[in-house]
């Protein structure tokens, strides 16, 4: 009898509750208004020849997509983002993990070290990019000349071959802070007894790292990879503030191409077409990453 009434109540609470629907409404409404509507608008405009301001326009089907894909600038942008993303994911993961392991070992001044290593994360990307912009022009070449390193003797941002690495370096300078903190927390969640037991069993340093540390870090690694994949595919602020896509088109990322097409080059409808393609690419790659990292997590568990 009593049990029944509980169940009844539970059901009432669960199913009939308008409150539970009401709780979701503010977010759902905002999200629909400011996310879904613009997304659909964007798709619609990508099928027109609208220039962004005129009163009339025609539906032109998928011809904007054809124009975009045929343009070498677009392929160039895709290639830039692909390289940037892969390098960013690998480097951020490796560098932050190494720093985290080192920081995890320190006892002397460890708080000081950790707080300084985190500082870049709290700064705005624009400020960081602007400072590095000056450093690349006025400071680093001087150091390069002093050390006699030729590729460092001129601004890395000015060379189409090295500009991507210069941007990447700045991104790493700032972007490793949060992953490092996450990795430290992950490392601290590994029970020390496991290491001790493994050492007694004669496991080497690498074996311990591979078989004990990594499995415990899998959730963090997944999170880092997923966030960096998206960051790499949508990189914008650093490029806007440092090279604006140059020299030539060497650092023209897709995000910047969308911006330039729509705001500077009167190619509004093509810019939304690029944006739609970017959406599909990011969606697909994110799904694949989620799938892969999800599988790994199961293995790890």
């Amino acid at each position: 009898m009593f049990q029944q009434s509980i169940n009844k109540r539970k059901r009432k609470v669960r199913k009939g509750s308008r409150v539970m629907v009401g709780f979701t409404l503010p977010v759902v409404i905002l999200y629909s208004l400011f996310f879904l509507v613009p997304l659909l608008m964007g798709f619609y405009y990508s099928l027109t020849n609208w220039n962004g301001i005129s009163k009339t326009y025609k539906i032109v089907g998928f011809s904007n997509y054809v124009k975009v894909i045929m343009n070498p600038r677009f392929l160039n942008a895709i290639w830039f983002n692909a390289r940037y993303m892969v390098l960013l994911v690998i480097l951020v993961t490796v560098v932050s993990l190494v720093i985290a392991m080192a920081l995890n070992r320190t006892k002397l001044c460890s708080t000081l070290f950790r707080s300084i290593y985190f500082v870049p994360a709290i700064l705005s990307l624009v400020t960081v990019a602007l400072i590095w912009n000056e450093l690349f022009y006025r400071v680093i070449p001087v150091i390069g000349q002093q050390l006699g390193i030729e590729w460092l003797s001129t601004s890395l941002l000015g060379n189409p071959k090295t500009a991507i690495y210069a941007i990447l370096a700045v991104n790493l300078w700032q972007g490793c802070s949060i992953p490092t903190v996450l990795f430290i927390a992950g490392l601290q969640s590994v029970p020390m007894e496991l290491y001790e037991a493994a050492t007694v069993d004669g496991a080497g340093r690498w074996a311990r790292f591979k078989n004990i540390t990594v499995p415990f870090l899998i959730p963090v690694i997944n999170m880092v990879i997923i966030t960096q994949v998206k960051a790499g595919l949508t990189v914008f602020d650093y490029i806007k503030a440092m090279t604006d896509g140059g020299p030539g088109h060497a650092t023209e990322a897709i995000g910047l191409l969308v911006y330039k097409y729509s705001m500077q080059e009167n190619k509004y409808s093509q810019s939304v077409a690029v944006a739609m393609i970017l959406f599909v690419i990011v969606g697909m790659i994110s799904l694949i990453t989620l799938r892969i990292t999800g599988d790994k997590q199961v293995e790890g568990d």
Partner: peptide, 29 residues
Amino acid sequence: SKYHKAIYYYLLFGIFVPFQAVMVPLVKY
């Protein structure tokens, strides 16, 4: 609740959409 499940995936979808994909129409809107 089908509604809540649908809402969850509906909202999750946003993770896969880069801001640049909606940025241009958003400015006009």
